[in-house]
Design a protein around this nucleic acid. Structure first.
Length: 485
DNA sequence: ACCCGGTGTCATCGC
DNA sequence: CTGCGATGACACCGG
């Protein structure tokens, strides 16, 4: 009964329209590549690298949060289409499940009135909100915020605690792990404070922090210039020898004694500089007005500072740079740039160097008489510090983007599943409508009578509708003639 | 020994 | 031109 063989009327393929997939979220093109490369240098190089890094990387206080931090959360995905939420997608009303085609009966003639009239799924209906789904993920913004005591002189323990806190999240593990043992093991030092290294340490250290092209060689005191084994700071009359256990400790100690300037007597010390998560222009400007006299005075007052840090001379057991024993009292090591700054007597703290706006930064530089070496180092420190923060932000964004794309993928899978189900429903509905049409056609034929009161044969006649809406009973022979004509 | 994730750094590009 | 942010690539470390 439900044969569709005589189906003659076109049936609108509503399901094609309804199944038009929604627009996908655009604007996301993320490379999910993560650098996982490793290198395997020669054992000699590795050993020397380790030695050098052990010496150089004592602490790390470079993690700052800049004012621009966090802007990503509110901007990056603004262009993206809000994704439909799971379950929020699809048809606006539930359909009565169409009866199976086998149950096609005339008595069900009105069953589907309107059932599919408004059933088009609103793809990407606002089932979710991009912000709600993705934004405001700023877990890092606050976790590194540290109290900044801007008035009180930080004690050594307080400084160490600050260093611990600021360095905990990143940590110079290389220094923590092997500083002490590497000092004496890998380095020789002659009476002139010259390294017996074949190469300078930063030559060995790929991530030495040197600007290979952007800064003059003097910019990196680790890098001997002109073949000199040690870095010569002419103005300061000191030999920069960052790579030697005795040399570095001695010179660093000297540097400390000359340079502690802001380190103990001001809140903006190297040691707690990173404890200031956000830049304060006012504080920076006030800081930039230090007089040279004050600097000298602070240098004189900084003798106690020399007992801190690298003065341990590589004592592995009691070296404060040994791997922390899980105690928060263990001071984090100074970063390489910090030690360079100390050695070169950079008269302002790292956070100022890194976080000051360019105008304030330049103004700060004018407050002091700085050598080319110092200037180059300062600019390198600034560049590296900013880039480090940028890299951290970049990686965070990359991870967030991956999470976002995974969510989007899951939602698209759900959407595809829903559309598949919807297509099956429409196919069933279409088959039912075809069945009903066939039945109605046969019923109409059964009521037609000729002049003799005899029914027309459905095999000899067919009903044809003209464009003006009139319906004619046409013999098949006539139709065949027309077709032949 | 190898893998993997985290991190710092450099080079480069685009604004 | 300079400064700066973003990012790929690389090296290194520690688990």
């Amino acid at each position: 009964m439900c044969s569709t063989a005589n189906y003659v009327l076109p049936v609108r393929r509503t399901c094609e329209v309804l199944a038009t997939p929604g627009r996908l979220c655009g604007g996301v093109s993320m490379s999910t590549h993560f650098p996982g490369t490793r290198s395997h240098g020669t054992p000699q190089d590795t050993e020397m690298d380790v030695a050098w890094q052990e010496l150089m990387a004592i602490t790390e206080l470079q993690e700052f949060e800049v004012p621009s931090e966090g802007s990503y959360e509110t901007t990056q995905y603004q262009s993206m289409e809000p994704m439909v939420s799971m379950g929020g997608y699809g048809m606006t009303q539930t359909h009565p499940e169409p009866p199976p085609a086998a149950a096609c009966e005339l008595s069900t003639a009105n069953t589907y009135n309107g059932c599919y009239s408004d059933s088009a799924p609103v793809c990407h209906r606002q089932g979710g909100n991009a912000d709600a789904m993705y934004g405001h993920s700023e877990p890092q913004l606050n976790q590194r915020m540290l109290p900044l005591s801007s008035h009180a002189q930080p004690s050594l323990m307080a400084l160490r605690e600050h260093m611990n806190m600021s360095g905990a999240s990143q940590g110079h593990r290389r220094a923590n792990a092997c500083f002490s043992q590497g000092l004496s093991r890998h380095m020789l030092w002659n009476a002139h404070g010259q390294s017996s290294h074949i190469r300078s340490a930063d030559d060995l250290e790929s991530d030495s922090g040197l600007s290979l092209g952007s800064s003059p060689p003097l910019a990196s005191p680790d890098n001997p210039v002109g073949g000199a084994p040690g870095y010569q700071s002419v103005d300061m009359g000191m030999t920069y020898s960052d790579g030697e256990p005795d040399g570095v400790t001695e010179h660093t100690r000297r540097a400390h004694s000359h340079y502690s300037i802001d380190y103990q007597n001001q809140s903006h010390s190297y040691l707690n500089s990173s404890a200031q998560p956000y830049f304060s222009p006012q504080a920076a400007l006030s800081h930039s007005h230090h007089s040279a006299r004050r600097v000298v005075k602070q240098q004189e007052e900084a003798a106690s500072y020399s007992d801190f840090g690298v003065s341990s001379r590589g004592s592995s057991q009691h070296n404060i740079f040994s791997k922390p024993q899980g105690s928060s009292s263990a001071p984090p090591p100074l970063s390489r740039d910090e030690r360079r700054a100390i050695t070169l007597k950079i008269p302002f703290p790292m956070d100022k160097i890194i976080n000051l706006p360019v105008d304030d930064f330049n103004e700060l530089l004018t407050q002091y008489t700085l050598t080319d070496t110092q200037l180059a180092l300062i600019r390198d420190i600034r560049r590296r510090g900013k880039n480090k923060v940028a890299a951290q932000n970049c990686r965070r964004r990359k991870l967030e983007s991956i999470i976002h794309l995974e969510r989007e993928l899951n939602q698209l899978h759900a959407q595809r599943e829903h559309l598949t189900q919807e297509r099956l429903e429409f196919q069933r509905s279409l088959a039912f409508i075809k069945c009903r049409l066939t039945d109605l056609y046969a019923e109409v034929f059964s009521h037609l009578r000729d002049e003799d009161g005899q029914p027309y044969s459905i095999d000899e006649y067919s009903l044809q509708q003209t464009p003006d809406g009139k319906i004619y009973l046409v013999p098949h022979t006539t139709m065949q003639k027309r077709e032949q004509c």
